[in-house]
Amino acid sequence: MASLKITEGEADFSVPAAGKACKTWYKVFGDLKSGARPLIGLHGGPGAGHNYLMSLEDLTSKHGIPVILYDQLGTGRSTHLQEKNGDTSFWTIDLFLRELDNLLKHLGIQEDYDVFGNSWGGMLGAEHAVRQPVGLHRLVIADSPADMGMWVMAANKLRRQLPQEVQDVLKRHEDDGTTDSSEYEEAVMSFYKRHLCRVCPMPEEVVAMFDNIKMDPTVYHTMNGPSEFYVTGSLKDWAIVERLHKINAPTLLINGRYDEATDEVVEPYFEKVGKAKWVTFTESSHMPHLEERDRFIDVISRFLKY
């Protein structure tokens, strides 16, 4: 079997408000000229980086689907803008939509492509899809809310299932404004081991995701906040429920049985998107692409190819 073709590159991205030249780093698995429709993957966070989505390369090696992963602006190997920390007028959904459009054009695939988005990436994918881009063929929204208010309510229900001493640590640091402490981070991790990724020990690519945010928390802290359930950033009031009927691409919805994206936060997509299919992974939380990798790849490939 021939070795898998992998290429890396950077796309120039004009962002006048940045005050400097910006680039989007990307990696392509497979050949974009093969004739097979490519899938572009949108990572979560915001600010998590592409690393934890590397298992999507199985779609290329096993099913011949070219896959593009990239680091969104402010993350990983793309341009960092730590001087914009806390600037909610700069870090906007529109910025990341323009970056996606720019990359699609740079790669020359804007006329025919599929989108996969996990968590924040699914929110971004939905925002892209409601604009009805002509080239979008199929959409996968994985482990994503349609309304951040509902997300926080659901996450706090899960939080109340943590041991009381862990809940006490979380509340104390949130009340004291010390969410950057190692004690708070350790308490948050007990939530993540239940509802973010249940693989033990944590896979290297998930550790790399956490490292991306720790090395530069600019985007995550500005748009989200200190943790998945303590949302203080600009996304806290985001909702797309009333616009979901505009999505005309066939859409696959995914979540896990133990997901922080609980059924109640995924349900609006199923109710409002015209052509929607929903699959729940019974042994997974927020990352079924790692927790049930083989089944996940089978489900995704069938949706994209058939």
Rank of each mutant, 00 (worst) to 15 (best):
A208P: 01
I109S: 00
K84W: 13
P66K: 08
A187D: 00
E174S: 01
V188K: 12
S190Y: 12
L95W: 01
D31Q: 06
I300A: 00
H106E: 09
L252G: 12
H63T: 12
L170T: 09
G44Q: 06
V207P: 07
V273G: 00
E260Q: 11
Y258T: 12
E57C: 10
K27P: 08
V219R: 10
I40G: 01
C200Y: 15
L162G: 02
H195K: 02
D147L: 09
H173D: 06
F191M: 08
P203V: 10
S34I: 09
L81G: 00
L253M: 03
D168H: 09
F191R: 08
V188N: 13
Q132C: 07
S61C: 14
V152Q: 04
G135N: 00
D298A: 12
E292W: 03
A18G: 12
T222F: 03
Y306A: 15
H286L: 04
P288C: 06
K193C: 01
A18W: 09
Y258H: 15
E267S: 15
K27E: 12
N255L: 01
H137P: 13
D143R: 03
V134L: 11
G177D: 05
D87V: 03
N255M: 00
E267H: 15
Y230D: 08
T75E: 03
G125Q: 08
G74M: 00
L253K: 01
P145F: 02
E83C: 07
P226R: 04
F96Q: 03
G74L: 00
Q110K: 02
E183N: 14
H137I: 13
V28K: 13
D12A: 06
D216V: 04
P46G: 04
I109F: 00
K157L: 15
F13C: 08
R172L: 11
G135Y: 00
L158Y: 00
H195Q: 02
T262K: 03
F29I: 13
K275P: 08
M153E: 14
G49S: 04
W91K: 06
V207N: 11
Y26K: 08
Y258K: 13
F296Y: 05
G122N: 10
G47H: 13
K193F: 01
K27Q: 11
K20G: 04
R98C: 05
V15T: 06
A142M: 07
G121T: 09
S181D: 06
L162W: 02
D211H: 13
E99C: 02
P66A: 07
T178Y: 01
R302L: 13
L95K: 01
E204V: 14
Q110E: 05
K305V: 11
E267F: 15
